[in-house]
Each structure stands twice: as C-alpha cells, then as structure tokens.
Design a protein around this nucleic acid. Structure first.
Lengths: 226, 226
DNA sequence: GCTTTGCATTTTGCATTCAAATTCGGATGT
DNA sequence: ACATCCGAATTTGAATGCAAAATGCAAAGC
C-alpha cells in the first residue's frame, strides 16, 4: 500500500492517517487518550478539516473511538476484543501460511531460515528486543510470500488494533519458550512446504499468543485503576 | 450514565456512509461510476464536508477509490482482487464455522436446518431469488452463532467489496448444483458440531464460489468493452 | 483530417467561519 | 459542607469560501 508514484501526490488526510497511526503505535498517543484536534492541527500545521477526515478513517478501522460531540479517543482494547481479534488474526495468518507454501521460492525459505536461526539465538541470550524484531520480520516474510496484498493489509489493520498489548504484555519464560517451540515447528513446516500443517501451526501459535496476552491483560487491569 | 443511546445521536457522516453504502449495494451507483460530490450534496441536503468525510471512510474500506484531485469512483473489482478476497472470505467463514460449532444451541441448529431445507426446495424449483436469500440467511446464522462481532463485521466489509459480482455473476447449472452439494455437507457437519470439518467445508465452498465468479467475470469482461 | 494549444468552467482540497453542544468554574440554595 | 444550577470558555460538527488542479471545448497548427 506504499504506492508512491514518482510524483508523490498524496492527500493531506492520507498523510495524517499515517502520522496519527504512527503516533499511536509509538505510544505517543496512549489507549484512552483524548485526541485534541486543535493541538494536533497546530502541531502538523494543517487545518481541522483534513485532520478530522483522518480521524474518521482511523475510527472506521477501530483504532480511535469517536463519541458524537465529544471528540476522539485512542481506542482501548478489552479482553473481549482480544478474544475476538486473535482468532481472526489466527485465521489470517493460517491462510497466509497456506498460500506462502504454494508460492515461496527456495531462496525465500532460506532467508526466513536465517531470520529464524538468528531469532532463536537471541532467545537463547534472552535478548527481547532483537527477538521481537526478527519475530515480526518472519511473520512479515510469510505474508510477503503469500503474495496477497489484501490479506497483508487486512492483517495489518487488525494487528494494529492490538497494539495496546505492548504496554502490558510481558512474556513469562514459559510462554516465551512455548513461542519459540511453535516457531521451530513453523519453520519446519515451511521448509517442507506443508501448507496445511503450517496453517494449523500458525493458528495454534496465535492461540498461544492470545492466551499469553489475555493472561497478562486481565492481570494488569486488576491492578491498574482508572 | 452510559445508556443515553436511546436517542440515536449519529453523526452526519455516519449516516452518509450508510447511505452511500446502500446506494452502491442497490446498484444505484455502479462500479466505475464517478461520484459527484455536489450532486450528492444537493440530493441529501448536506454540505460537502460530511459527504467528503464519508467518502474517505468508504475509500479506506475499499468500496470507493479516491484519485487525488480527481474525485471518487465506485471501486471496480478485478479478477485479481477476486482471487485475493475470496480466500480471505473463505478463511473467515471457516473460522466462523469452527466457532459456531463450539457455541451453537440445538434450537439454532434446527432453525438453520429449516432454512437449509427451504433453500434446497427453492433450488429444486430453480427459484433463484429466494434461494439466494436463504443462502445469505444461512451464512448469517452461522456468523451469528460464532458470536464474534468483530469477525462478522470484518466479513461484511469484505463481502461488500465483492458486491460487483452480482451484476455479472450467473451461476451455471453445474455450479449451482455444486453449491447445493456443498451446503448439504455443511449442514451435516454443523449438526454434528464437527467444527474442523465445517471449517474445511466452508473454505472449499468459498473456493468454489470464487471459481464460479472468476469464470463469469473473465468471460463477461471479454465481451464488455469500456 | 487529426492533433495540439489556450482559456473558461467545473471540481477538488483545504482553510475558515459559524452555530450547537459540552465542559468547567463559581455562585446559589438547602 | 454538599449538591445543583447557571453562564463563560472550549470544543465539536457542519457550512461556506477560496485557491489550485483538472476537465471540456473551441481555435490554431501540422
């Protein structure tokens, strides 16, 4: 979707969608935060019209909540939403895995294997940040291999909605181990191009992730008062 | 103090999103049609601002295409998009089927059985319109039983994008027969609450549907010049 | 005859403006 | 002291205004 033609003639509201998007992802705007139109307008040097258009778009994607006459807030994510969204992400990743197995080249498998080995290496050294980065790259690579832009974009919009878990989710050692084990199996199925199995594994992997996040989220919400 | 929603205080742009949505679904706005802002403004008696907001939202959902400085058009659907979207719908319906089997009551199964039998009856009489209506109701009922609002909504937005096929798609007798056979199996799996099998069947069903639409779409685009 | 050029009209993108709703602070009454 | 009410200030929702871009069309050039 980064379709920049030679002459990048993007619209202002489009830029703003990305900008706000990034602000939410970077944690500059936290879930539940009020979004002050005027403040953002002066910050970005635009008028309210395009900003409001961007907010409507983000709201339709579920990233912000618009309360009539009360303005916009960054959406919070509830345990119920986690329960609903993760199975969806599971289904989509599962599909991505199946499709990837149909298309992927040996070179791309080798590339993912490399990412995988590096990731495991970081796991063994308990280096969380580079682990997470490689993890993301692996999943991205699978989606790339699936060669279905609509699928990739859809997955991305949903995943963004779960961004909030980053502020709470902390992998327990057991969960982390589980995740790595999942990935070993995933890598194996991918190398065998066993799409069906890869699909199941990815769905399971997401289910584990959901459990992890759900645990961590309920536990956190217990101690964090509003 | 949360229950003030008795008075539906919807925003204008929200109304317009639905309105335009319906216009596209009803075929009043056909794929490829230019959307004239001013004309719609006078028609709905609103100013351009909320209308434009609505267009941005619809564009983010893929139902309309915005070309910078060139306005909005109702999105066309290409065979490639069909190829990308139908597997996604398949994955989502498959998930819906699996979830439905976990939750569904006997009463709901009986209700769906009734719809199914009616639908088959209409198939035998080759009554296309009531067949399609019952078909839709069955799929809706499965999503309802899945009890995942996010999933239902997501499916709906994607399905809407494929609305265009209504103008071209014509079931061949063979394809129609295939679809009914799929449904017989689907009904069976549902009554046995065999989620895994139902999931596979629904995925297959969508794959068949995709083939059908794809055939019909390429064939039509061959004879229809721009 | 066909394409290209220049200009008027229309359409689009965004800023500004205005009215309605909400929020906040303090005064009032119990 | 506490809750309630009132009004100013802020904030939101939508209409209007205005400049830039695109479109349509007629005349000029090849």
């Amino acid at each position: 979707m980064a379709g920049n033609d030679v002459i990048s003639r993007r619209s202002l509201h489009g830029e703003l969608v990305d900008l706000l998007h990034d602000m939410v992802l970077d944690g500059e705007l936290r879930p539940g935060d009020k979004i002050n139109e005027q403040a953002l307008c002066v910050r970005f040097g635009v008028s309210r019209t395009p900003l409001r258009e961007a907010l409507k778009v983000l709201a339709s994607g579920g990233l912000v909540i618009l309360a009539p006459n009360r303005g916009a807030r960054v959406a919070r994510i509830s345990p119920q939403e986690i329960d609903q969204l993760f199975p969806i992400m599971g289904a989509l990743e599962s599909l991505a895995g199946e499709l990837a197995c149909q298309n992927i080249s040996n070179a791309d498998i080798a590339r993912i294997r490399k990412l995988h080995d590096q990731m495991v290496h970081h796991y063994e050294k308990k280096e969380s940040a580079p682990y997470l980065k490689l993890n993301r790259q692996i999943h991205e690579a699978i989606f790339d291999a699936a060669n279905n832009a609509e699928l990739t974009q859809l997955y991305h919009t949903i995943m963004v909605r779960t961004h909030a878990v980053r502020f709470t989710a902390k992998k327990s050692p057991a969960r982390w181990h589980e995740a790595v084990e999942d990935h070993v199996k995933i890598m194996d199925a991918l190398e065998k191009r066993d799409g069906t199995r890869l699909g199941v594994l990815l769905k399971d992997h997401l289910r584990h992730k959901a459990s992890m996040v759900h645990e961590s989220l309920t536990e956190m919400s217990a101690e964090a008062a509003e």
